[in-house]
């Protein structure tokens, strides 16, 4: 930056940033504190902002009374596999969309965009019947296939933006050096696009990790449930046990938050390169 920030401007800036930091973190703080209170203390009055006594009771509960470990593994499998596969497929598709001209390309893009406008609820019934026919109901593979399809449009559009910022001279040079087109794509372009690909994968992973309605529709047995479906069950089954709920919430947030924290530099770098192209 050229012009030097004035002292007051700097103070105002840091006050604002400080306030927003508190606002951002407080809900997280509160859910962590709630999860660490012993049963009963959650409903004690006055509220305790720092529990008189910490307890892991709630965490033990969700692993012993509900199969929370299993839910986490299921979510991890589905989100990881769907995230990777969707990102790969989108990479190929976005490459074509960015580098080639063909008839109906605008229509294809529109078709992808429109999927973002359609409420998932309209498709739930038919999807269920289709999965029944494919014998993929109550099956992690079935859920994964659907998640891949859900992820593809947005990550294709997103990745297409990144391609646009990479000159095709790069691949052409590689192809002249004897690479095949695929070789050029993965050898030369992908490394340059790493931040963008990480951003797309993360986006896909988080979406799959958090998805509720499809999973709640397609999964039946406890052994096949993903975390959001299980959480949904926690809140609607008999008493709302805020202690256990909070413990489950903390464990649900933790992995994505960590991933996000580790990769946030890449995401911004990636988005800076591609910005969003809608």
């Amino acid at each position: 930056m050229i012009n030097i920030e004035s002292r007051t401007a700097k103070i105002v800036r840091f006050i604002f940033l400080g306030i927003w930091l508190i606002i951002s973190l407080f809900p997280l703080y509160w859910i962590v504190i709630t999860s660490l209170k012993p049963a009963g203390a959650v409903f004690r009055y006055p509220l305790q902002y720092w529990p008189a006594q910490f307890s892991l009771e709630n965490y033990i509960n969700i692993f012993s009374k509900a199969m929370f470990g299993r839910f986490m593994i299921n979510s991890l499998i589905v989100a990881l596999a769907a995230g990777v596969i969707a990102t790969l497929i989108s990479l190929l598709a976005s490459y074509v969309l960015a580098r080639f001209e063909f008839r109906n390309k605008t229509a294809v893009l529109m078709a992808f965009l429109v999927t973002q406008m359609i409420p998932a609820f309209i498709a739930l019934g038919p999807l269920y019947l289709m999965m029944v026919k494919l014998k993929l109901v109550d099956n992690l593979l079935g859920l994964m296939l659907i998640y891949i399809a859900v992820c593809i449009p947005f990550s294709t559009i997103m990745l297409r933006g990144f391609f646009a910022n990479i000159p095709d001279a790069l691949e052409e040079a590689a192809m002249i050096d004897g690479c095949s087109r695929i070789g050029a794509l993965f050898r030369v372009v992908v490394p340059v696009m790493k931040p963008g690909i990480i951003a797309a994968f993360l986006f896909n992973f988080i979406n799959c990790w958090n998805e509720l309605f499809l999973s709640a529709t397609l999964m039946n047995k406890d052994a096949n449930k993903t975390i959001p479906t299980a959480l949904n069950g926690f809140i609607t089954t008999f008493n709302i046990d805020w202690g256990s709920m909070s413990a489950a919430a903390v464990l649900t947030i933790l992995p994505t938050m960590l991933m996000f924290a580790l990769a946030s530099r890449h995401i911004i770098q990636g988005l800076t390169a591609g910005a969003i192209k809608g």
């Binding site: 940033l17 927003w20 930091l21 951002s24 973190l25 997280l28 988080i206 990790w209 958090n210 998805e211 509720l212 959001p228 959480l231 949904n232 919430a249 649900t252 947030i253 994505t256 938050m257 991933m259 996000f260 924290a261 580790l262 946030s264 530099r265 911004i268």
Partner: peptide, 15 residues
């Protein structure tokens, strides 16, 4: 700071 402030994005709407 970015990592701390940007994390809500990673949480599900339901949660």
């Amino acid at each position: 700071y970015q990592a701390l402030v940007f994390f809500p994005w990673a949480i599900s709407g339901f949660l």
